[in-house]
């Protein structure tokens, strides 16, 4: 008997260690980024574009990358919304009577969700050549838009699945068309959930390098049109870290900190929104 008790104790200990290690790992990653990045973070970093000689350690900042990343992700969100909103509405309203088809679509979405972003990058690149556009903000928006689409649909589908059937059916019984049910009932009911899905996709879009590596190019200027090249924050981290000059490397750490803070703000917002959504419903 005693060995069973011992086994139980050992397993329990291992489990506690595992759970604790999750917290420790998160703190380890965050502190190393904060400790290394914070000393080099300055107002100049976030408010200026790279000046002449920036990549030799002279003055400037990464405003181009911050704004570029925001433009890119916002554009991608808008593009992706045109796909994902109708798709999730279709799955939960138009195709409600045909669960087999809906499950098949969910399966395809899961497959799309699993495809690595570098493959989307390669696909975006061939698409770009096929359409005859150069590396630009637009090409990046198209690539990232496709890449985050399954993430967005999954989030929206998840909340729309949980809208009570009775609500949908009573709207239909009052003579609403499918479109009216979709936009006046479904969307209105699930706005916080949709916002959460958008934010999650935004976080994925803003942090990904592999999908934009070949499609956005890189420039020191803030882009003023869709056809211009653009820098992005993760790429800025990646490029600056590859420099042999210590000052530039330090700025990579500061840029990494900026990116981390953006991601943390997004996750807090997601948490806040989903809490609000659930407290509304119960």
């Amino acid at each position: 008997m005693w060995w069973r008790k011992l086994e139980e104790k050992i397993i329990y200990l291992l489990m506690v260690i595992s759970v604790a290690s999750l917290v420790i790992l998160l703190l380890a990653v965050l502190t190393s980024i904060f400790v290394k990045g914070a000393p080099y973070l300055s107002w100049e970093m976030v408010s200026q574009t790279p000046k002449g000689g920036y990549y030799f350690g002279r003055e400037g900042g990464v405003l181009n990358a911050i704004v570029g990343s925001l433009y890119l992700s916002l554009g991608a969100i808008l593009l992706s919304l045109a796909f994902s909103l109708p798709l999730s509405l279709a799955m939960n309203i138009h195709l409600r009577a045909r669960p087999k088809i809906v499950n098949r679509i969910r399966f395809v979405l899961d497959i799309l969700w699993g495809i690595p972003s570098i493959v989307y990058g390669a696909f975006g690149f061939t698409l770009m050549i096929y359409l005859g556009i150069k590396a630009s903000l637009l090409a990046g928006i198209i690539t990232v838009g496709i890449f985050i689409m399954p993430i967005m649909v999954r989030g929206m589908d998840e909340v729309m699945k949980n809208v009570p059937v009775s609500l949908i059916e009573s709207a239909f019984s009052l003579g609403s068309t499918r479109m009216e049910v979709a936009f006046k009932v479904m969307v209105r009911q699930t706005i916080p959930g949709i916002a959460t899905a958008i934010l999650l996709a935004f976080g994925r879009g803003i942090g990904d390098v592999a999908s934009v590596l070949f499609t956005t190019g890189y420039t020191d200027n803030v882009p003023t049109s869709l056809t211009q090249q653009t820098a992005t924050l993760p790429l800025a981290v990646f490029f600056q870290l590859g420099s042999p000059i210590p000052e530039v490397q330090n700025r990579a750490y500061a840029s990494a900190l900026i990116l981390t803070v953006i991601i943390l703000v997004i996750s807090i917002a997601v948490r806040f929104l989903s809490n609000k959504y659930y407290s509304n419903r119960h």
């Binding site: 942090g207 990904d208 981390t260 991601i263 948490r271």
Partner: peptide
């Protein structure tokens, strides 16, 4: 515990891979 751990897991999932790369290089 689950309420405490869920955000921890979510944030771990949300950290971009380039940040994990920087952490890898640093540590």
């Amino acid at each position: 515990l689950l309420r405490f751990m869920q955000p921890v897991i979510d944030i771990l999932a949300g950290i971009p891979s380039v940040i994990y790369g920087v952490w890898g290089i640093l540590v």
